[in-house]
């Protein structure tokens, strides 16, 4: 080992302030990408943003965000996970850290980097080494028993979002039951019920993220 200052990258100024890293996880189809798009649309004027997507197939999520022009193309990075989306956000976060730091080097200083996980099952959570805060997104069509079943995502996420409330009557899901179970298993951590189709601006989630951002800036 040498003792020189270089490691293959440009010598780096000390980071003035690292961006808040927000993980957004949850099962396939629950609305993670739509939520990321909403957060980008609503926060991009007030905060410097970038997004990392972990898609199990292709770069579909990143392409969705680019197509919808919620952010400049070079503020969105896609990570491939080798068929193991939970590994990439929990056990071996190196590719995601690399993507986050590349975005910060390129566009920094940033206020918020959102890391969207590839769709996974209820046991997936973000490593604390990757995400400062995490949102877990469920949708009602998975059944109203899901919050009761728990799992680390449901029980420990800093915010639980139950999306597609507009579908509840169609799939026979009881939102009251979901709210009660979620409150019980989450020991008081917040829960937001949303319908991104009816309210694409997801006001509850956006105000929660604003508060988290403000707390991070003060810290």
């Amino acid at each position: 080992m040498g003792l020189g200052p270089h490691d293959g990258r440009e010598p780096r100024e000390p980071r003035p302030r690292r961006a808040l890293r927000l993980g957004i996880g949850g099962p396939v189809g629950s609305g993670k990408t739509a939520l990321v798009a909403a957060l980008c649309r609503l926060l991009r004027e007030e905060a410097a943003l970038a997004v990392v997507t972990n898609d199990i197939y292709t770069t579909e999520d990143a392409d969705f965000l680019r197509r919808n022009a919620v952010l400049d193309e070079d503020r969105i990075a896609a990570v491939r996970t080798g068929c193991c989306p939970h590994t990439a956000i929990r056990d071996d976060i190196s590719a995601n850290l690399d993507a986050v730091e590349t975005l910060e080097d390129r566009h920094g200083p940033l206020d918020l980097v959102i890391v969207e996980s590839g769709g996974d099952n209820l046991t997936a959570t973000f490593s604390r080494g990757l995400a400062d805060r995490q949102i877990f997104v469920l949708d009602v069509s998975g059944g109203d028993k899901v919050p009761r079943k728990g799992g680390p995502g449901v029980t420990t996420a800093d915010l639980l979002v139950v999306n597609k409330t507009d579908l509840a009557p169609l799939v026979g899901a009881d939102l009251t039951v979901m709210a009660r179970d979620a409150e019980r298993v989450r020991a008081g951590l917040p829960v937001a019920f949303t319908s991104l189709r009816e309210r694409p601006d997801a006001p509850e989630v956006v105000s929660w993220v604003r508060a988290v951002l403000a707390a991070h800036a003060d810290a």
């Binding site: 080992m1 040498g2 003792l3 020189g4 270089h6 490691d7 293959g8 190196s94 850290l97």
Partner: peptide
């Protein structure tokens, strides 16, 4: 890319682990 990731691990295991690579080694070791 894998070199960058392993470098991160090595620095975690051995504080002071440094490779004297020039900045020209674009993309990491």
């Amino acid at each position: 890319a894998q070199g960058r990731a392993l470098l991160r691990v090595a620095r975690g295991l051995w504080p002071g682990f440094v490779l004297d690579l020039p900045a020209g080694a674009a993309g990491g070791p």
